[in-house]
Write a protein that binds this DNA or RNA. Structure first.
Length: 486
DNA sequence: TGCCTCTTAAT
DNA sequence: TTAAGAGGC
């Protein structure tokens, strides 16, 4: 029986896994490997926590089926070549990443392997459609969501979800460099992750439990409740999706089946509202694949001339630590730090405050998110930040500046989200919970709040910083107009 | 999935 | 005094 290396990356699942299935279909003996190569694919601290536990879960599933998962470290091409030699594998299969530089890396790898007489093959497992399969009539990539979404709805996923696997042949050989999980050093040293287990359970099994619970309890109300951060109205599947514990194809099929089976009015509309969000993820990956420079520079090139501030170090730190003095913003940043996740409505608000009211380059916010989110995903993150900063595809025009107090009153009317994450403000009446700086002194002292002692006053005036942002935007437009003339 | 300001018209 | 709509940023 010939052997095939199955190179796991962001596809940490056994069901609907094309690389694993092709080996089994061809009667090849699968040798599952994972290569930790932070130099090539950097990983934030919170996602590293997730990865550790997801690898553990995948390995346990593989062992339960009679196989194993071998953990390697270092340059992926080198590690895989050695593993192929050690195990006398004749083939290498993997599921593709569409992140910048990965296609070139995969081509180099394929060349090297075929020089040694080894067969290589890669598959799309993370997206509904390969990014090269979707384009406008003229062949160019989409830059606007709605036509992209219409095309995606018409085409649907590229395939039906693949089945899982039964008992696997035991690994009779193993790569010599295989390491124990803990030696990859993926867990934070300082105990920052102490609360993460209360909020999350990485792994394929719990990804499905999460999806089923969402379908049973929340999807029917998704359109109304997805914007209320105090509720669990969203699917919370993002980290499971990022690590490929569940695939977009699986979600697409399962949600459509739910819509067919659920008789209640609105089920079809609810399913479509949710799949539309899955399509935003698809759109973000489509954009980063076709415009790889947008990981750290604006898609709209006029924004290269945007007059960001330079002396923002203190404000950036206050934002990161949830000490801006604007409760809804601080609640979001503290939720992020404590749980590795933030509700999407609040992500938009904190991004707007950073890039517009504080005039801090969006890349600084993006970097913080990449380090602290368990669902940190280069495509979604770059897209989301550029959307918020007004410089991305289909972005909010720059002059659409959120007022976080107005937004908080609309989406956290009773203040329960703020009270959950900023307990200092717990006793403040609803009238002032979103703007404690306007509360009369007796109200503050009754609630035990001492501004600038146990809760800060706002680091910017919402009104004047809004005007400052609009002025900066106008300056950029003048500059670029001037630049075009020259 | 914007906010602000102004206008108009109903009270 | 307030609600609703329109237009500009």
């Amino acid at each position: 029986m010939s052997r095939a290396l199955i190179w796991f990356q962001h596809d940490l699942r056994l069901e609907d896994n094309p690389a694993l299935q092709v080996a089994l279909k061809r009667g090849q003996h699968p040798i599952p490997v994972y290569v930790h190569d932070p130099a090539e694919t950097p990983i934030g601290a919170a996602s590293a926590w997730w990865l550790h536990h997801s690898l553990d879960a995948l390995r346990q599933r593989l062992r339960a089926l009679g196989s194993d998962l071998f953990l390697l470290e270092g340059d992926s091409a080198v590690a895989l070549q050695r593993a192929a030699q050690d195990t006398a594998a004749e083939a290498l299969y993997w599921n593709r990443s569409y992140a910048p530089g990965m296609r070139e890396r995969d081509q180099r790898l394929s060349r090297k392997f075929s020089q040694n007489g080894l067969h290589t093959e890669s598959f799309n497992a993370s997206l509904l459609r390969d990014p090269m399969q979707i384009s406008k009539f003229d062949g160019s990539p989409y830059r606007v969501f709605t036509p992209f979404w219409k095309t995606l709805q018409k085409l649907g996923p590229a395939r039906d979800p693949l089945a899982g696997c039964g008992r696997l042949p035991p690994p009779d050989v193993k790569p010599a460099a295989a390491q124990p999980l803990r030696s990859l050093r993926l867990l934070p040293a300082c105990g920052w992750d102490s609360e993460f287990h209360q909020h999350w359970e990485p792994g394929e099994t719990s990804a499905w439990r999460q999806l089923e619970a969402f379908l049973d309890n929340h999807l029917i109300d998704y359109a109304e409740e997805r914007d209320l951060p105090a509720l669990m109205g969203t699917s919370r599947l993002s980290p499971h999706l990022h690590f490929g514990e569940i695939s977009a194809v699986q979600i697409w099929h399962r949600v459509n089946r739910w819509a067919q089976q659920d008789r209640s009015p609105g089920a079809v509309a609810a399913a479509e509202a949710f799949l539309r969000e899955v399509a935003w993820r698809e759109f973000a990956h489509h954009l980063l694949f076709h415009f790889p420079h947008t990981a750290d520079s604006p898609l709209d090139s006029r924004y290269r001339a945007f007059p960001w501030r330079h002396d923002y170090a203190n404000d950036l730190r206050a934002w990161q630590q949830g000490n801006t003095g604007i409760p809804i913003v601080d609640a979001g940043m503290r939720q992020l730090w404590a749980s590795g996740w933030m509700h999407n409505r609040i992500r938009m608000l904190v991004a707007s405050i950073l890039s517009k009211n504080l005039l801090i380059p969006w890349q600084q916010g993006a970097a913080w998110f990449l380090d602290t989110l368990v669902d940190a995903d280069l495509a979604n993150n770059s897209f989301g930040w550029q959307w918020s900063a007004g410089c991305g595809a289909d972005a909010a025009p720059f002059f659409r500046i959120f007022n976080p107090v107005t937004q908080a009153k609309r989406f956290d009317a009773d203040g329960s989200y703020v009270r959950r994450w900023v307990p200092q403000l717990r006793k403040l009446p609803n009238k002032w919970i979103h703007q404690p700086w306007l509360a009369p002194a007796p109200e503050l002292s009754n609630a035990g709040i001492y501004l600038d002692t146990n809760y800060p006053s706002p680091i910017v005036s919402l009104d004047s910083s809004r005007k400052r942002a609009l002025a900066a935007w106008k300056r950029m437009k003048q500059q670029t107009r001037h630049g075009e003339e020259v």
